[in-house]
Design a binder for these strands. Sequence first.
DNA 1: GCGTGTGAAGATATTCACAGCC
DNA 2: GGCTGTGAATATCTTCACACGC
Lengths: 210, 210
Amino acid sequence: MDHNIPDPSVRRLSAYLRQLERLAGEGTRHVSSRQLAGYIKAGDAQVRRDLALFGQFGRRGVGYEVDDLINVLRTILGTRQRQWPVVVVGAGEICHALLTYRGFRQRGFDVVAAFDIDPKKIGRTIGGVDVLPMEDCAPVIQRLEVRLAILAVPADAADETARRLCECGIEGILNFATTGLEVPEGVFVSEADITSHLEQLSFRLTSHRP
Amino acid sequence: MDHNIPDPSVRRLSAYLRQLERLAGEGTRHVSSRQLAGYIKAGDAQVRRDLALFGQFGRRGVGYEVDDLINVLRTILGTRQRQWPVVVVGAGEICHALLTYRGFRQRGFDVVAAFDIDPKKIGRTIGGVDVLPMEDCAPVIQRLEVRLAILAVPADAADETARRLCECGIEGILNFATTGLEVPEGVFVSEADITSHLEQLSFRLTSHRP
DNA sequence: GCGTGTGAAGATATTCACAGCC
DNA sequence: GGCTGTGAATATCTTCACACGC
């Protein structure tokens, strides 16, 4: 399987999967690229191209079988064969929201531990997940073979914490901090700063209308 | 000011602003496109191009004045002249995290109210913000001239709630639900589904290494 | 008829490379 | 020497349009 997949395509693959899961829940068995495109802001050719990057999954004249395509997309995204253990660092409000959200598991992610440096937070259990002292992060990550971390610490601690996570072998970081992170080669970062999202919107509402 | 600004550029403008705010806090007065690019995964020419979309803000041989550029970027992003009132819909855990996060205000956003349909949640005050019944959303949005909403309801309620918000005059939605939304022409949606972010990462860690 | 898969064309975004100014 | 701003070149992404199979 090739490696030069554009970022926008990967984002859309996620979006297709979300729609397909919904369709499957409604009992729909077949779907066309045009339908799928309708849910996303995209054209039907775009949908077919995105899928064609990985193989041929449809039938001409018919479309795609919903359940099949779900499995294909999960395989592509890496959430079919394995359940990904994930750690959350920083036991604040975002962490709380993440640990009580029950939707991750069925999508292939499993929050196995949270870490903090605040003794008042350490020892608590939130949503069935223990909040552990930051010192434990290396052994836990290694023992459970955790490769993904969610970073939810204050901005001024983000970079240092990220460095530490990378040392423990973390390869992917979902970053809720407002700071951009400096990470070693081979570590992927996905930015989830909420303020930036709001700024995208405020930009679009500011004198840039079509 | 033109309107055909690429989405990736707008995302980077946010990122530059975050870095500049940090630099300003550290007392740094000048910055070059190369430095700025170093924080982001981008080249120096990219930084200059992004800024050149809106004007000329640097001095040759010198670089950019940090405070000036902060003001420029805030103006571009629309967060300099005005404080944006924002409503949160769905008073769950994410809402709780949003209402207790104190960083929005200094970045130009002000959460003015939260809404829910659950009587047990209505009437509470979280982080100084009242949780109001969903029926009040239209009058509040109109009275406070709210144009931005954060959608934090369960997936199955997302589309219907979004429709309702658009009817109230909301023009930008930050969507935490896993569903893609169908919104009228002229309404902007920014997707913040956390599972999708995790899927981006798990994809990159799955057999697609360089 | 319908809908996929895909070369070829087109549109967009990024990088190069250098003139011009500090 | 350093660094911006920007045409020109390149790379990347998206759309068109049609052959092929259902």
